[in-house]
């Protein structure tokens, strides 16, 4: 078995997952009228559960907790974990990564036999610690998280009767940007959940998000570049 995730990374992953799902669901329920992306039933369901004011307070409380814990994590583990993670997810090989995404899509939707019949070799380009799909979603998640955190804090603490209240124009831009970031992740999050938890062959990777370890054979097959680097470094 090879260690793939540290305990702190595992904790942050699941903390992030719980906060994100709650914030996404409750945030969409806070929107009204034509700006409600799910439907009136969604708004009524959540507001029935928390109350009109309660839902806003809960969203703000969980959002603040999420930002605070992340800030703490960055202070403590910034250099050791966050920076290497950022370096890893932002190292793209555009041609190979696009090929990986297209072939992985075909592999899932058509299957390798059908892909081969189309004259396309179903073999995926070798991947490092993260595959191309994971890196793409990670970059979007990091950018969206930063956008959500900044605009969320402005709306939560620099609005209304606050002495730091910003102008109406800034608040409108914040709402717009907050929604754009949340909408983007609402589309990519289900893809990540499927690819990580339900797609065939991903069982060991999912279990590693709890245990921290993956079998050597899995790493060799799914992350050959990372595996080769590990072997090289002993």
């Amino acid at each position: 078995m090879i260690r793939r995730h540290s305990r702190s990374a595992i904790f942050m992953h699941w903390f992030n997952a719980v906060c994100w799902i709650f914030l996404l669901f409750s945030g969409f329920a806070l929107l009204a009228g034509d700006m409600q992306p799910v439907g009136r039933w969604w708004e009524e369901c959540w507001q029935g559960l928390f109350g009109d004011r309660g839902l806003l307070v809960a969203h703000l409380a969980v959002g603040t907790l999420w930002v605070a814990v992340y800030a703490l994590y960055l202070v403590v583990f910034g250099r050791r974990e966050a920076l290497p993670f950022l370096r890893e997810v932002t190292s793209f090989d555009v041609k190979s990564d696009m090929l990986w995404c297209a072939k992985k899509g075909l592999w899932l939707v058509l299957g390798p036999k059908q892909t081969r019949k189309l004259g396309i070799d179903p073999a995926l380009p070798p991947q490092g610690f993260y595959n191309a799909g994971q890196r793409l979603v990670a970059v979007l998640a990091v950018l969206s998280s930063a956008g959500l955190a900044v605009t969320g804090l402005v709306m939560g603490f620099c609005s209304g009767a606050s002495e730091w209240a910003v102008s109406e124009s800034v608040l409108q831009w914040c709402i717009f940007a907050h929604f754009c970031c949340a909408g983007l992740m609402a589309i990519f999050l289900p893809v990540h959940i499927y690819m990580a938890a339900l797609a065939p062959g991903e069982g060991p990777a999912l279990r590693s998000m709890f245990t921290g370890f993956v079998p050597e054979s899995h790493a060799e097959h799914h992350n050959p570049l990372w595996y080769a680097a590990l072997k090289k470094n002993g």
Partner: peptide, 19 residues
């Protein structure tokens, strides 16, 4: 500025639904 959120919300709904 929030007028643009209406078509955006529809976009999220349809794209999310398709995904």
């Amino acid at each position: 500025r929030l007028d643009a959120m209406r078509p955006l919300a529809r976009g999220v709904k349809w794209t999310g639904g398709l995904v």
